[in-house]
Amino acid sequence: MNLLAVEGVTLTFHAVAALMDVSFTVPEGRIVSLIGPNGAGKTSMLNCVSGRYRPDKGSITLDGRELLGVPAHKRTSLGLSRTFQNIALFKGLSVLDNLMLGRHSRMEYGLLASLFYLGKARRQEDAHRRRVEDVIDFLNLSPYRHQAAGRLPYGVQKRVELGRALAAEPRLILLDEPMAGMNLEETEDMARYILDINEEWGATVLLVEHDMGVVMDVSHKVVVLDFGRVLAEGTPAEVSADPAVVAAYLGSEDAVFLGR
Rank of each mutant, 00 (worst) to 15 (best):
L101N: 07
F24C: 00
N198S: 10
D176I: 00
S114I: 13
G213M: 07
D137K: 15
A40P: 01
K57V: 11
V218G: 06
H14L: 12
A88Y: 00
E177K: 05
E200N: 14
T235C: 10
L152R: 08
L111A: 12
A255T: 01
V9I: 15
L172C: 06
R54D: 02
R260K: 15
I87T: 03
G36F: 01
I87L: 15
K57N: 11
A167N: 02
R65Q: 15
Q85V: 08
V22H: 00
E233I: 03
I194W: 06
I87C: 04
E169P: 03
S142G: 08
S105H: 07
L206T: 06
S252R: 09
N47V: 02
A244D: 09
V160K: 04
N86V: 13
R122F: 03
A237P: 02
I31T: 09
R192Y: 12
P71E: 12
L101A: 14
H73V: 07
L166K: 04
V214F: 06
A180Q: 11
G41T: 01
V208Y: 07
P153Y: 10
K120F: 08
R130F: 08
D134M: 11
S59A: 08
R131L: 15
G39P: 06
L34F: 03
R82D: 06
R159F: 04
V239M: 04
P243A: 13
R131D: 13
H146G: 06
T204I: 05
L231H: 05
F138T: 11
L258D: 10
L96W: 15
P178M: 10
A148I: 03
L4D: 04
A191F: 01
S219W: 14
Q147A: 13
G213Q: 07
L118I: 15
L184I: 15
D63F: 02
P27A: 12
R164G: 02
A244W: 06
G39L: 07
A191V: 06
D97Q: 15
H73A: 11
R171V: 10
Y109P: 04
L258S: 08
P236F: 12
V223A: 01
V256F: 13
R159A: 10
R54E: 04
E199M: 10
F257S: 09
D217Q: 14
Y144R: 05
V218F: 08
L166P: 00
A113V: 08
L207F: 08
P170A: 08
A72E: 11
S94N: 12
T204Y: 05
I60L: 02
N98D: 04
M1G: 13
A127E: 15
T25N: 13
G64P: 01
F90C: 10
